[in-house]
Design a protein around this nucleic acid. Structure first.
Length: 462
RNA sequence: GGCGAGUUGGCGGAGUGGUGACGCAGCGGAUUGCAAAUCCGUGUACAUGAGUUCGAUUCUCAUACUCGCCUCCA
């Protein structure tokens, strides 16, 4: 069996991955807060952990891996949107979840086995909070329930911060009802127009962090294998999850391996709304970037490093994929290359896997290229349509086909008569319109038409 | 202020204690009437300083610079 090694944020080392239960490898990844279209930064963890999901399924078997990714559908941003639009919260979150799955599907991401929504696990959260109170790790105060950070000895072990340092940093919300400024909210009161549920502490709603602890416990039990998410979630979100779960169920519980993907930048700069380099996956798709190309760009940088989204990379990725699609379209699928599997098994070295694919292409091992690329979620049977020429996709009508065929034939005859002035002028007209010509010896050139062919220019050839 | 990451050839970007990937671009060649496309070939790069070592781009320490997170946006 392939030995998988993963970098564990908790231990800061690359470790051999040993599942708790080889028949049911469990992975939990923090999903989106569903109030708007996913931006491309949201998509990085989705793609990263999709590759891991595929690798785990490959190694342990499809039926022996369970992947859960939550939807956070209780959040002030959602409340704000509901207020602005007058729509119901459920309406907004349902729509946003639909968008999310659609957009991530376009990136070739498989859907997780489980997709729990926070609002469907409120009783579990309440039960967990009650247990934390009983054990002295939490306390109610003015309609809130707070986690007593000082009581949990290992607080800060994931992000390697000490309580004292964090308080010195002083970027915490100070509130009179908190015993300690670092204490974080497990439950908070809701006013009439905010979403809420009845609880032992009054009408209210959960804090952000408790949902992942409660849902992973319900779905996976006290221990599971992998917990993933973006690096930005390491603190405070994941630190707080660990505190809640381990305080509740014991020090040796919860996720065994923590994985965090680095952040994404755009053209060398942090993506932000104010810089205007902030865009959604949908916008990118609508601009004509195939999802497969976006995915390829993501995979070309290791997940542990900051990734820079640039137009140049997208163009290169597009050219490579076009080449690969052309080579593999009519090829029966082979088996994935050992090199690709090993690269992925080595802490998800997706770039290394792509390199192996490049070599397979050079060696003309297209059957293995196809299978290997599919391990990465690219070159799938349903993914290559964009790479076909317009003619292959039936976009070109007979009229235009005839114009081009005639022109190519005329050019061929001119060449036979060594009338190069005529043949070159026809060639220039064709290439100017976007037609790609492949000259052949002693017969008319083969041609293909990309999507952006300028039909109006072809009229001149009539 | 706290935490962390990075610095590799023109660009992107892996990796390795000793034969220095890969892609793009460039250059040379084949091919072509000329091109395009395609194919073949081609590049001693590893921030700086010191240390460890027979030997370091790779390990250790320091310095400089860049970047990210901790703050609505992942």
């Amino acid at each position: 069996m392939t030995e998988i090694k993963l970098y564990n944020t908790l231990t800061k080392t690359k470790e051999v991955f040993t599942p708790l239960d080889i028949d049911n490898v469990r992975m939990y990844v923090c999903g989106p807060t569903v109030y708007d279209r996913a931006h491309i930064g949201n998509a990085r963890p989705v793609v990263v952990f999709d590759v891991l999901f595929r690798l785990l399924r490959h190694v342990y078997g499809e039926d022996h891996v369970t992947y859960a990714r939550n939807f956070t559908d209780v959040d002030d941003k959602i409340n704000a949107k509901a207020e602005q639009t007058g729509r119901s919260i459920r309406d907004i979150t349902d729509e946003t979840i639909g968008w999310f799955l659609e957009d991530m599907g376009a990136l070739g991401a498989l859907e997780p086995d489980l997709a729990p929504r926070a609002t469907e696990y409120i009783p579990e959260m309440i039960a967990m909070i009650e247990e934390l109170i009983e054990k002295g790790f939490a306390y109610p105060a003015e309609g809130h329930v707070l986690f007593r950070v000082k009581e949990y000895q290992n607080y800060g072990k994931l992000s390697r911060r000490s309580l004292d340092d964090m308080i010195a940093g002083a970027r915490v919300e100070v509130a009179p009802y908190k015993e300690n400024p670092m204490d974080f909210v497990l439950w908070k009161p809701s006013s009439g127009d905010q979403p809420g549920w009845e609880s032992p502490w009054g009408y209210g709603r959960p804090g952000w962090h408790i949902e992942c602890s409660a849902m992973s416990h319900k779905l996976f039990g006290e221990k599971f294998d992998i917990h993933g998410g973006g690096l930005d979630l390491q603190f405070p979100h994941h630190e707080n999850e660990i505190a809640q779960s381990c305080a509740c169920y014991g020090e040796d519980t919860f996720a065994q391996v923590w994985m965090h993907n680095e952040m994404l930048q755009v053209e060398g700069k942090k993506m932000s709304k104010s810089l205007g380099n902030f865009f959604s996956v949908r916008e990118l798709l609508d601009q004509g970037y195939p999802g497969e190309v976006i995915r390829f760009v993501f995979l070309s940088t290791h997940y542990s490093k900051p990734m820079d989204w640039t137009e140049k990379k997208a163009k290169e990725a597009e050219a490579t994929l076009r080449k690969w699609h052309k080579a593999t379209t009519d090829i029966a699928i082979g088996i994935p290359s050992v090199g690709v599997i090993n690269a992925l098994a080595d802490d998800l070295n997706t770039h290394g896997a792509i390199t192996v694919c490049q070599k397979l292409y050079s060696k003309r091992d297209f059957a293995s290229l196809k299978a290997s690329a599919q391990m990465l979620g690219i070159l799938g049977a349903d993914q290559g349509d964009w790479a076909k020429s317009a003619d292959d996709r039936g976009i070109i009508n007979d009229d235009i086909r005839e114009i081009i065929t005639n022109a190519v034939f005329k050019r061929h005859n001119a060449k036979l008569q060594k009338d190069f002035a005529t043949s070159d002028s026809i060639r220039d007209l064709l290439t100017d319109a976007g037609v790609i010509l492949h000259d052949q010896k002693d017969k008319p050139a083969q041609w293909e038409i990309p999507d952006d062919v300028d039909v109006s220019k072809l009229e001149a050839l009539k």
